[in-house]
Write a protein that binds this DNA or RNA. Structure first.
Lengths: 123, 123
DNA sequence: ACATGCGGTTTACCGTTTCTTCACCACAAG
DNA sequence: CTTGTGGTGAAGAAACGGTAAACCGCATGT
């Protein structure tokens, strides 16, 4: 994540599909409209978008958002992924952002319009 | 520590034809698109690609992926090779990745294309 | 103090996916 | 024909993940 050193951290803006996120302002825009996210939801979104395109393990997400080690049987990440998904989906229908890789973790990647066809199970 | 774009074992990337594989992330890309592989399928792919070009015995593959000794009449490797093949083929048609060497094992090697191969695979 | 509301945490239920093993088939060699 | 080898569909069990709801402070308003 090449955070350019002198780019002014307080105006840092992340982009992902039609999402715009300003980590230091706690602001997330979807198609220009502000999302209403709780702190946990927002931090989780930031953590995922910062690693978009890669599969991130629950342990890593938990460390990023909660700041401590994920304990066995803790489903917090799953619960918040679920909440995030429903808000993102409500804001931008017909687009999938968070993909599950069973046994590995989650991957954030805005899915170009959903053309479910046969062949590669496009996550 | 400055976040350098590419460093450390966690960004290790394997290449094979139009496949890109990140072992520590559980991510496999075919032509830039993420494949949906189960844990076993993924580990098997990694094990084969790490030895690409060589014939690998079932016993070796089993040890790499399952971590224990292959027992007599256990067809697990064959079953998962079959599953892997169908996903790879779905992702990249007209290309053969996994070759069977009866009596010896499997060999991973992206094949330029599906041509009627005459002759016997070189041992 | 009490009631209310909200977000975070944890639990529980349940459908889905994966793993394992078995069975049957095709093919090739002897 | 018989045997050895590999491809693959399917069944049952186990693991995994989605998510509603209960629970638990904590802050605010009356």
């Amino acid at each position: 994540m090449a955070v350019t050193p002198a780019s002014g951290a307080h105006t840092e803006t992340l982009h992902a599909g039609e999402l715009e996120i300003r980590p230091h302002e706690g602001l997330a825009l979807a198609r220009g409209r502000a999302l209403t996210l709780s702190v946990r939801e927002f931090e989780l979104l930031v953590a995922m978008v910062r690693r978009q395109g890669t599969i991130v393990k629950r342990e890593d997400l938990y460390r990023s958002v909660w700041g401590t080690e994920l304990r066995a049987r803790d489903r917090s990440v799953d619960v918040y992924v679920s909440k995030l998904r429903s808000k993102l989906e409500a804001a931008v229908p017909d687009r999938q952002f968070i993909h599950t890789h069973p046994g590995f973790g989650y991957r954030f990647q805005p899915q170009p319009s959903q053309n479910v066809h046969m062949g590669v199970p496009v996550h």
